[in-house]
Amino acid sequence: MVHNFRNDITVDWCPGCGDFGILTALTSALQELNLGPHDVAVISGIGCSGKTPHYVNAAGAHTLHGRAIPVAVGVKLTNPKLKVIVTGGDGDLMSIGAGHLVAEGRRNSGITVLMYDNAVYGLTKGQAAPTLKLGVQTKSLARPNIYDAINPIMLAISTGYSFVARGFSFEIAHLKNIIKQAVMFPGSSFIDILQPCPTYNNINTMDWYKKRVYKLDDDKTWDPVVTENDPKAEEKYNRAIEKSFEWGDRIPIGIFYVNKKIPPFTERLKQYVDNYESVPPAAQDVKSKDGKPIVDPFETFKDKIIV
């Protein structure tokens, strides 16, 4: 039987919020992948995006502001069979949690990061967030934004995420399709999801985006996938970076870059940790039947034996 990943908890996002589309895309993606109720963990930080795990019928943790990635990595590395999904806002992931976003690129643990990108801090009444462009004044700002914006796609590619894409919360089928590929991808994936905040972002509205977004794969020559011994690896990398700067009248959505050559952290651990693949920490017994230790202290610490 297909598991229903939506539950009946009341969703309290504002009417018209892009988060609804993301939730629908996510839960239908999990369903279409035919994942079981215990195959998935959804981890979030703080903000409107942080409420997502409560609305998903799977194990979920709504953690601290900015810290969803470390928690998710802890879950993934101890139980690599789980599909671990992070939901966070652009403030959560690229401001207070920026260090973890960058470090996770280097680690590449095999988690899926969904970034709800609305350029504002909605839950605290609309302050400027890291993707709001310099000089833009959304309605609750006292003056135009004095910071410049981060380019999330370039950041993700350059820090090492091996699956980098962008979706739009009102292109649900398209987004669902990207999420499905990201969740099944062995390395860490990052999806920048353009998402209007109808309450606080009066600039980047649904209509504003609808007029501008176009799909990368409408161009039949667009091939973002780097494979083993790919002669075009460097070209694909450079083209993805170049594409990430396209913003204005036309905004590309779709898969920017996939690198199948980077071994995820879990693959790297296999080289060093006994039985990591077959018996990861979550599958281990740590005591004998009568509760005694099973570790031989002198044999394990043989190098510390002095006499």
Binding site: A41, I43, A59, A61, T63, L64, G66, R67, I69, P70, V71, A72, V73, G74, V75, K76, L77, T78, N79, L82, G99, H100, A103, P281, A282, Q284, V286
Partner: peptide, 16 residues
């Protein structure tokens, strides 16, 4: 920040 939160993540799968 990551160290403590990642250890928390580890604990959520039942690992000491």
């Amino acid at each position: 920040l990551s160290a403590i939160n990642m250890a928390i993540g580890g604990a959520l799968t039942g690992v000491r």
